[in-house]
Amino acid sequence: MTLSEDVLAARISVDLSMQVPPLAQIRQWLATVLADLAEDLLQDLMLVCTELVANAYDHACAPRRLRVLRSSDHQALRIEVDDGSPDSLPVTGKSRLGAFRGRGLIMVDTLSRRRWGTYSGTECKTVWAELPLS
């Protein structure tokens, strides 16, 4: 996992080249870098980030990257996760991994107040969500 951060511009980027998703490391890193956030918002951010990263590992192929961006007006945080599977689009409430799975995007949908989606290119896709700061 390679970290790159520009806290002044509020752009945080994580190269997810590891074989296993580094979810605990991502949570620890976010807590350090974004320590100025209210605790409940930080917990929501960690949950959304780990859900989107876990989905990229479970349902898509490499390369993968996580970005967290603070809007210029400081009213929202945007989480973006890229992966190398542009044709594998997320489906809320369903998982090919079994009936006991598929609830992660429901949580993302709720925490982001339905402000999430995907962008697909020819070689990759980005799944994004925005968390309001107020």
Rank of each mutant, 00 (worst) to 15 (best):
D36C: 06
N55W: 12
T92F: 05
A76N: 08
I106E: 10
V14N: 05
D82K: 15
T118C: 10
W128D: 00
D15P: 09
E51H: 04
R64E: 11
E39G: 08
L45G: 12
C49Y: 03
G104N: 00
V127S: 09
A76W: 12
T2V: 12
A24E: 08
M46P: 01
L47G: 00
G102L: 02
S72K: 08
R11G: 14
A31G: 14
W116P: 12
L52M: 11
R27L: 07
G121E: 13
V7E: 06
A10R: 02
P63Y: 02
A56M: 04
A10H: 04
P86Y: 01
T126A: 04
S88Y: 03
D109W: 07
R113A: 15
I79Q: 10
R65Y: 14
A38E: 10
R11L: 11
A56G: 04
D15T: 12
L105A: 03
D82G: 08
I26T: 03
R115F: 00
Y57V: 12
S112H: 08
E130L: 04
A60C: 06
S85K: 04
Q75F: 08
A129T: 09
G121D: 14
R27T: 05
L37S: 13
V14E: 09
W116E: 13
P22H: 06
P86A: 00
D83L: 01
S88K: 02
I26P: 00
S88A: 07
S120N: 07
G93N: 12
R11V: 15
L41K: 13
A56I: 01
S4W: 04
A9R: 13
D82A: 14
G104L: 02
T122E: 06
P86Q: 02
A24S: 07
E123T: 14
A35T: 13
L8T: 15
P86F: 00
R96T: 05
R101D: 14
D87W: 00
A99Y: 08
L47A: 05
L77G: 01
D58E: 14
V20D: 05
M1A: 11
Y119W: 12
C61D: 05
E80P: 11
H59I: 07
Y57L: 11
Q19S: 14
L111T: 03
G98L: 07
G93I: 11
W128R: 05
R70H: 04
S71M: 01
S17T: 12
L42T: 10
L34I: 06
R11P: 12
S112G: 09
P132R: 07
E5I: 12
